[in-house]
Amino acid sequence: MSRLWRYITSSRLWKSIYRNPYPRDKRSRAMVILNSLALHLHPVRVPKRATRITYTWGLGGLATWCFVLLTLTGVFLMWYYIPTTQDAYWTIVQLQTEVTFGAFLRNLHRWAAHAMVLAVLAHMTRVFYTGAYKPPRDFNWVIGVALLLVTCLLSFSGYLLPWDQLAYWAIAVGMEMGGATPFIGKQVRMALLGGFEIGQQTLIRWYTLHVIFLPLACILLMATHFWRVRKDGNISTPVYEDDDEETLRAVEARRQQLAE
């Protein structure tokens, strides 16, 4: 067994994929982070505190993971779903009754969507109560607010697609609200509905938003969000003084010292 394993891990193919051996020492633990697409979003090392569950509760990570689950299950749903007012409902019926794992994956998609909204709200609340929005993370908080909006819109736009009573009337309530926009209410309603009432045009608009535009917007915002977390000095660490330049430099020096 171990010989086979050694044979595999010393093959060219394996080495072309994994540039370094299983990380056991300082150097390879650094290299694994730097050499992997998913892992390089992290710094090589973080303050111990940043890994404590009770600091971040991992909520940003959970929101990200929900997004991944939603993408995977969503692709599966798209294989069966047809966005027309005659077919939409029946393709879901068919999906649930005839397709292997159809009902399971639809349920998973639905529950993961709710979980993502919850995770994002909880994440925002943790960031707030830990004061992690303060400069230099101020703009990343703004990106976060945009992510909150996009997350809600993603979830809401998906709501219409099954074309059942729940979907239709939830959207009707939403349209009533949008249509009440001061001064441009009629135009807003028209843009959201693609007509005067909820119908085929509405479905295709929301479908397109749900499967292309909003996910892309979310990915772009998430990429910026993660990049900013790194650029803003990684996960926040305690600041006890209202820092002037000098203190900041001292903190930085101290951090370097600790790192050695």
Partner: peptide, 19 residues
Amino acid sequence: DLKPVHVWPNLVSIELIGA
């Protein structure tokens, strides 16, 4: 608690368990 630790395995393992 502010002393740096390696992300692999200290953080990556937690993320995996969470996911």
